[in-house]
């Protein structure tokens, strides 16, 4: 991944896409298929709402790269551990949290991951460059419901948003909302 983000999805048995995670610049996708020696990709990677640049490394080149630079393998261990932790946390949230809590958790997670401090610090916020449609997919909520809830969060002064971006204005209050 070179810029913007990729959405990693899979389809359920009825063909409905299920969001799994997203890849940011400098991340690798397709690792599971390579290391499990699968013939087919188990997930679909598609560009987010903005175009993105991706470098394709063929399997045999990647194998050569791993042989030439064994240290990469140790970095991959950490990357995979982080990914599993993220997936397990998502599963736990799906099982035990209400949709409203999941929306806030997702916003907090994305803010931490993107870590883009607003330049003027004015809306004291962390900016998230995702569309509401993408946020709905991540949360596992309908687009209509998500729009209603983030509108409510905006009205209460916790966030601000526009096309393909969202800024958290009050991180502490948002955090408190997920801690009951």
């Amino acid at each position: 991944m070179l810029d913007n983000h990729l959405k990693i999805l899979t389809n359920d048995q009825k063909g409905k896409p299920v969001f799994l995670w997203f890849a940011k610049p400098n991340e690798l996708v397709g690792l599971t298929t390579y290391f499990q020696n699968d013939r087919k990709y188990t997930c679909t990677a598609i560009a987010g709402d903005m175009p993105c640049k991706v470098i394709f490394i063929p399997n045999h080149h990647f194998t050569k790269l791993l042989k030439a630079y064994p240290a990469i393998k140790h970095q991959l261990l950490k990357i995979l551990c982080d990914r599993i932790t993220f997936m397990e946390k998502r599963t736990k949230n799906m099982l035990h949290q209400s949709i409203d809590e999941r929306i806030i958790e997702t916003l907090l997670f994305l803010a931490a991951k993107e870590n883009h401090q607003a330049p003027d610090h004015k809306p004291s916020g962390l900016r998230i460059n995702f569309s509401t449609k993408e946020l709905a997919e991540m949360v596992g909520a309908s687009l209509e419901y998500l729009r209603r809830r983030i509108k409510h969060l905006k009205n209460t002064g916790l966030i601000d948003y526009g096309r393909n971006w969202l800024t958290i204005r009050d991180m502490n209050r948002l955090r408190l909302m997920t801690q009951h």
Binding site: T10, L80, I84, T91
Partner: peptide
């Protein structure tokens, strides 16, 4: 190291499957 990566990718696959099961 290679085998450990394989083990982790297997775990990752299982956790992705679990998400699908729960949501769908």
């Amino acid at each position: 190291t290679f085998k450990t990566i394989q083990l982790l990718t297997r775990d990752l696959k299982a956790s992705e499957k679990k998400i699908i099961n729960i949501t769908q």
